[in-house]
């Protein structure tokens, strides 16, 4: 259990560092942060506005007090209030986060279902026809940026073929069918690139494991081929796949921003993009803290899975 406690402590420290850095980021800016946030091209901002913003963000108080106020706030789940309309950032994040997570979960499951079997099959006959074909498809899929892919899918399936809606969102509770219909394209957009990655890692990892001595041992014991591949090879090969997949999922939380924009999916991206455009600092940092925490949590989860599957890690 020691390794687990240690790993958990590490994650908490990391989270604290991230939160502090995000909080401090506004102070890295040369000059008065409030003035900078209000600065429009060229013109200097209205001093009254600057003063108001300073009070609103608490910038007029001493730095340690600001720090403790903000960090304690984050620990309580209070991410501050929007500069634009004063609404609670925390509440808005909680309203939108599930939609983003739904998108990621759908895409993640889809990509594992495609990527792992394809990777295993391809590693068994690395020079076979399937293997070469899959490599070309995966290489292409990985080379199309998600927002381009999304745009092209909209053009094809919505505008040219008219099979699926171009974008939007309907809550599952109101109309499940419509909800799922709207989910298909954005989830597929993310899943295509992601399954290409899962495929490549699975294939590479299986190719690393298959020539190892213990595979030969298992075969020499007469263990049937299918069991050798699944119990012995894949079990060992999955670890890098888990790591890369989790890293990708973390990155995806950000990557979905683009997909959500393309499909008008009202997840975190809408508030984030609007926040950046309005230079609404609390909104941007709020989302950043949540996403980073999610990312750190994912890494922790990966290590726990590692610890469970690989006895050499727990010590």
């Amino acid at each position: 259990m020691g390794w687990f406690v240690r790993r958990l402590a590490q994650s908490l420290v990391m989270l604290w560092v991230v939160v502090s850095l995000v909080f401090l980021s506004i102070h890295f800016v040369p000059g008065d942060p409030a003035e900078l946030l209000l600065a429009q091209d060229g013109g200097s901002p209205d001093p009254l506005m600057v003063q108001m913003l300073r009070e609103q963000l608490g910038l007029d108080r001493p730095l340690p007090e600001q720090y403790s106020h903000n960090v304690m706030g984050i620990l309580r789940g209070d991410l501050g209030a929007s500069m634009v309309d004063g609404s609670s950032v925390g509440q808005e994040v909680m309203r939108r986060l599930p939609r983003t997570l739904e998108l990621i979960a759908a895409a993640g499951i889809l990509s594992l279902l495609i990527g792992i079997p394809a990777g295993v099959l391809s590693a068994l006959r690395p020079r076979g026809r399937f293997s070469r074909g899959a490599a070309v498809v995966a290489g292409t899929a990985q080379s199309v940026p998600v927002f381009v892919l999304g745009t092209l899918l909209v053009v094809l399936f919505a505008q040219v073929l008219g099979w699926l809606p171009a974008g939007g969102f309907v809550p599952f509770s109101r109309d499940p069918g419509k909800h799922l219909q709207l989910l298909v394209l954005p989830a597929a957009t993310i899943a295509i690139g992601l399954s290409a990655i899962v495929f490549r890692i699975t294939r590479a990892s299986m190719l690393d494991v298959l020539p190892l001595d213990f595979i030969r041992t298992a075969r020499a014991k007469g263990v049937p081929a299918r069991r050798v591949i699944i119990r012995h090879a894949l079990r060992n090969a999955l670890m890098p796949v888990i790591t890369v997949f989790a890293l990708q999922l973390g990155g995806l939380l950000a990557g979905t921003v683009l997909v959500e924009t393309v499909f008008n999916w009202p997840g975190l991206s809408g508030m984030l993009v609007a926040g950046v455009n309005a230079r609404d600092y609390p909104v941007v940092t709020g989302v950043l803290v949540v996403v980073s925490a999610f990312y750190i949590g994912l890494n922790l989860l990966v290590d726990i899975i590692y610890g469970i599957t690989d006895p050499r890690v727990r010590k």
Binding site: A39, L253, A254, L272, V273, V276
Partner: peptide
């Protein structure tokens, strides 16, 4: 480096754009 890796690249860029302008 671990700390930098905790920030998704796209979001870090967006934070910078908020603070410094795009």
């Amino acid at each position: 480096m671990d700390v930098i890796l905790c920030f998704p690249p796209l979001l870090l860029a967006m934070l910078a754009a908020t603070l410094y302008g795009a």
